[in-house]
Amino acid sequence: MKKTLLSACLAVLALAACDASQNRRLPGLHSSASPRLAVDPVSSEREQPPRAPLPAALTDGLPETAADVPVPTEDLVLAEPVDTLALPHEAHLYPVDHLARARALREEGDLSGALTEARRAVHDAGDDVDTSEQALDTVILLARLTDQKPLAVDAYRELAVLFPDGPEPLIQQARLLVELGDTEGALRAAESAVELDPEYPETYQVLGRAHLTAGQLDEAILRFQQTVHLDPYHGYALNNLGLAWLQAGKPEQAVEVLAQAAYLLPHVGYVHNNLGLAYERLGRLEEARMAFDTATRLSPNDPKARLNRDRLNREVHASVDVLKLLGDRQAPGCPE
Score class of each variant (00 low, 15 high):
Arg25Glu: 04
Pro27Tyr: 06
Pro27Asp: 09
Gly28Asn: 00
His30Ile: 00
Ala33Asn: 05
Ala33Tyr: 11
Ala33Ile: 02
Pro35Ser: 10
Pro35Lys: 00
Pro35Gly: 08
Pro35Cys: 04
Leu37Ile: 10
Asp40Glu: 07
Ser43Asp: 02
Ser44Leu: 12
Arg46Ile: 10
Glu47Val: 10
Gln48Pro: 07
Pro50Gly: 13
Pro50His: 02
Arg51Phe: 01
Pro53Thr: 03
Asp60Met: 06
Leu62Tyr: 00
Pro63Cys: 02
Pro70Gln: 05
Pro72Thr: 03
Thr73Asp: 12
Glu74Tyr: 14
Val77Ser: 06
Val77Pro: 10
Ala79Tyr: 04
Pro81Asp: 07
Val82Asp: 11
Leu85Tyr: 03
Ala91Gly: 11
His92Tyr: 15
Leu93Pro: 05
Leu93Tyr: 11
Pro95Gly: 02
His98Pro: 08
His98Trp: 07
Arg101Val: 07
Ala104Gly: 00
Arg106His: 14
Arg106Pro: 01
Gly109Phe: 04
Asp110Tyr: 06
Leu111Asp: 05
Leu115Asp: 00
Leu115Tyr: 02
Glu117Leu: 10
Arg119Trp: 01
Ala121Ile: 05
Gly126Tyr: 14
Asp127Pro: 00
Val129Tyr: 05
Val129Cys: 01
Val129Lys: 14
Asp130Glu: 12
Ile140Arg: 09
Ile140Asp: 11
Leu142Tyr: 13
Leu142Asp: 12
Leu142Ser: 14
Leu142Met: 13
